[in-house]
Amino acid sequence: MLCERCGKNEATIHYSEIVNGKKRSYSLCEECADALGINVKGDPFEAFGAGSLLSGFFGDIFDHPAVGRVAEPKTETRCPVCGSTLREIAAKGKVGCAECYRTFRAELAPTIRKIHGGVTYKGTTPAADNSAAAKEKPASELDALRAELYEAIKNEEFERAAQLRDKIKSLES
């Protein structure tokens, strides 16, 4: 099959876009696809992130039913705080503000799962005074003990090393 645009080269790219809810398909050669700004080389989502490793993760965004490959800007959802669209976020591989994560929670979820695995957050919260929590842990004491343990091992004082190791374990738990 020849390219629908130039009629000369073999059509190797079969491209569909959705405009106003109507799907149109084209068969193009690589050259014409390139001229039309349709990215075809390798990762089909490269066009949305200049081939950066991270934007590869965003590929999933476009599998989401809410996002057509070509959507009308007017109808695209925008983040109420920074005005970013999902398309812009995918292109950059970065959000526009914290609210983007809430606005596009469902759409971003597959990407986040891909990066981090299907896990939820564990750790400190901003409301808590983390410096106090960190201080409660005898941080400096632990570091000092570890340094002592290190010296003991280096000097091959294994009995002392074993005692220090137990002490570190009890402090850590």
């Binding site: 991270l54 591989g93 970065k94 959000v95 914290a98 994560y101 986040i112 990066i115 957050y121 750790g123």
Partner: peptide
């Protein structure tokens, strides 16, 4: 910026948590 499921919200999603 913080979310109970995602942790601290960062510009790049690789740093979330």
């Amino acid at each position: 910026a913080f979310d109970p499921e995602l942790g601290y919200l960062t510009h790049c999603p690789t740093n979330l948590g």
